[in-house]
Design a protein around this nucleic acid. Structure first.
Lengths: 121, 121
DNA sequence: CTGTATCCACATTGATACTG
DNA sequence: CAGTATCAATGTGGATACAG
């Protein structure tokens, strides 16, 4: 009971919701890719070589739903779809950049700590 | 091959590594809890009512390994263990706070986008 | 009190094949 | 080209019981 309530509360917490999204395997990659400018679907698929079509679409849909990316179909016979960051999405990308900057500045410390934790004793 | 290589590269990327951690279900909660000061194990367990002992220990170990939290056993017969943020961990908590602040400022937008995405058409 | 090990259920994800 | 559906494998997380 208490547990249920707690989990519900956590799920509703803004910070946690956003952090959760950023943790999604492909979100940060897509955000980073789209930060450089609009990209077509196939283009994304080629550049994010590790993502299956399914995951790409699925992730993109989620981001679109949250108003973070916009989907534009330059529809002709050969379907053309383009994804771009919305202003909201750009804002999130900026916030994310802060964490990434921290990460790049401190990986060395983390790796050192890890080595010492694993190796010694 | 290409896929493997890509995934390996992603796994090695500092930004992604850290983002991944923050996305771990309990990391952000623990960081937030510990940011207020040191906490004993049982205390954490009580306050994070949704986490099982297993996940708590497991997550804490990971954070300790990365040098983000420090574990101090005020060992007597009745085991007493205290966790606290290291300076490194505090730094990460700060970076995280930026994202959380953004989140709190923009959940409304996200929810609105979501409602419009779900409801309309 | 704190931490570990085992077992199991569930969610996530990728391969594949197929539709506009 | 873009997106979807289905299925199977995998990993993650929780309950429980146990050890230091």
């Amino acid at each position: 009971m208490t547990r249920e309530a707690y989990l519900t509360a956590v799920a509703a917490c803004p910070g946690h919701r956003v952090l959760d999204r950023l943790g999604d395997k492909w979100v940060s990659l897509i955000l980073k890719e789209l930060a450089d400018g609009p990209r077509r679907s196939g283009e994304l698929h080629r550049r994010l070589a590790g993502a299956s079509r399914k995951m790409l679409t699925q992730t993109l849909r989620g981001l679109e739903r949250d108003g973070l990316v916009a989907r534009a179909t330059t529809g002709g016979a050969p379907s053309r779809v383009e994804y771009r960051l919305t202003p909201l999405g750009a804002g999130l990308a900026d916030a994310m950049a802060v964490v990434v900057a921290w990460a790049e500045a401190h990986v060395a410390d983390i790796d050192e700590a890890r080595a010492s934790f694993d190796g010694n004793c």
